[in-house]
Design a protein around this nucleic acid. Structure first.
Lengths: 160, 160
DNA sequence: TAGACGTAGA
DNA sequence: TCTACGTCTA
């Protein structure tokens, strides 16, 4: 049967394993992996602190995340596309949540979005839990400040 | 069980009745009522002719469709919102398809999008088949040409 | 590439 | 109101 999960949570989502694949951001929403229908970073509030729950690293959006084995450098959100004016990214919202997740040593779910070969939409694959190792601001190609987040994948996670 | 219909067709969709309600445009897509994920007018090609299959009349988009009992005046698509320059609408794409549906006397499915009371998204209600009675260009509030389509609902359609 | 009656959240 | 790693079609 189809799994439905409405509760936003940090850490693994019951029943979801590495390699599980989905067709739409909306599906990620339904199963509870990622509730942000459009944004790449999803987060929740614990008390007064924003903490990241999941990120989507999606191909073909003008971002340039890097991945090598179990390490990923993820570009922060803000001022990149569909935006009238390119501005410096700020440590707010999702970016702040990722920074807080580092401090709190909270894991973050990672979903990889792969553009389909026919260029009609993307496939989204759950890639497991990562820890945020560090983050830093950096000048991007357009000269504006972008936050980078270095994430490291946890070992020994269940696969499909 | 959940109905899934991938085939784009003119006229009624089997199993769908007036009053049936949906939460997302994406659902309209899955059940086969309206395949245009964002656009208000969906159409298909028969030979070399574009013919309308369905329209969504959605509240809160800056359009100003009018409805009185079984008659609706629907605003054509093009150059209304999220657009850099407001231009005259043209009799192409969905607008052309509606015009052709009038000439061919083909029915058009109508879905009404109602903004939810909490302003979180819309509910979409199937309102049955309509015929296109006439269309005309008209100057809109911003001074640009907009096409208007007068549609009339067919009598004696099955309700939920 | 741009345009389309999207959708959620800050 | 605007932003957000959307999704489809022309």
């Amino acid at each position: 049967g189809m799994q439905v999960n409405c509760e936003k949570m940090i850490g693994p989502v019951p029943g979801i394993k590495i390699g599980d694949e989905y067709q739409f951001k909306a599906e990620l929403n339904v199963i509870g992996l990622h509730f942000n229908m459009r944004g790449g970073i999803d987060y929740m509030k614990k008390g007064n602190t924003k903490l990241a729950t999941s990120i989507v690293s999606s191909e073909g959006n003008g971002y340039f995340d890097r991945r090598e084995s179990d390490v990923m450098v993820y570009c922060g959100e803000g001022s990149h596309k569909d935006v009238k004016v390119i501005k410096d990214q700020k440590l707010v919202a999702g970016n702040l949540a990722l920074a807080n997740s580092m401090k709190r040593k909270n894991p973050v779910r990672v979903i990889l979005g792969k553009e389909r070969s026919d260029h009609r939409g993307k496939d989204y694959v759950y890639d497991g839990l990562y820890m945020v190792d560090k983050y830093w601001p950096e000048k991007g190609p357009q000269g504006n400040i972008m936050y980078k987040f270095k994430l490291r994948r946890l070992a020994n996670q269940p696969c499909s």
